[in-house]
């Protein structure tokens, strides 16, 4: 464990808590893409199957359980409890166009052709594009509540911090995982436009308005 990965995981946890609080407090999931939340639930389910087989640390096990539980809780809140506030008309990204390529790529480019490894690789590829429906929804509505932009900033920062973690592990631990690094780069690049808007607007108290 290193400071980059620890802050990355905490930023990830913060994002999930911000989102749950936003939905629970405002009793509304307006402006949130349910499709992205479904993709995240698929990502954690397919990545953390090793919960049953390998024990790495109490921290690792605890965080995996939290990520899986909160991702399903968020999907439940959006599609069941606060279903009436779900923005179905704008949340129209075809997630099969993300899932199918991730499955194919995981079958073709992986480290080891075993069930657990292919599912792990699929989850890495899918996570790198899982935010697209959310960014698509923000671009369609042309704006985002500030709480939603804080959620996106924390979520985007988590993988950016992981990039620093991988640099650290390459030099300090002679360790690297090319698939995770390439997917992590793609994932972070997708946030660049948002990061720019967040830093130049939201941090100055303005609303996040996308140039229509």
């Amino acid at each position: 464990m290193n400071i980059f990965r620890l802050f990355g995981d905490l930023s990830h946890l913060l994002a999930i808590i911000i989102l749950l609080l936003k939905i629970w407090k405002t009793r509304s999931c307006a402006g949130i893409s349910g499709k992205s939340q479904i993709l995240f639930a698929i990502v954690y389910t397919s990545r953390y199957l090793d919960l049953m087989t390998t024990y790495i640390s109490a921290y690792n096990t605890f965080m995996k359980i939290v990520f899986v539980a909160t991702s399903y809780a968020t999907v439940f809140l959006m599609y069941m409890k606060f279903k009436a506030t779900y923005d179905r008309n704008h949340d129209t990204f075809r997630i099969e166009f993300l899932i199918v390529p991730a499955v194919i790529l995981a079958l073709v480019i992986n480290q080891e052709f075993t069930v657990l490894e292919v599912l792990w690789t699929f989850s890495i590829y899918l996570e790198s594009v899982a935010i697209l429906p959310q960014l698509f929804l923000v671009s369609k509505t042309g704006e985002a509540e500030s709480i939603t932009s804080h959620y996106l900033f924390a979520l985007g920062s988590y993988r950016a911090l992981y990039l620093l973690n991988w640099v650290y592990r390459y030099y300090a631990e002679d360790h690297y995982d090319l698939i995770a690094i390439v997917a992590g780069l793609v994932q972070t690049v997708l946030y660049c436009d948002f990061f720019y808007l967040y830093i130049t607007k939201v941090l100055k108290g303005k609303k996040l308005q996308l140039p229509a």
């Binding site: 990965r5 390998t54 790495i56 965080m63 990520f67 973690n165 995982d177």
Partner: peptide, 10 residues
């Protein structure tokens, strides 16, 4: 430098 095969990250 070896490619890792144990996924110890979240």
């Amino acid at each position: 430098i070896e490619q890792s095969n144990m996924h110890d990250e979240l």
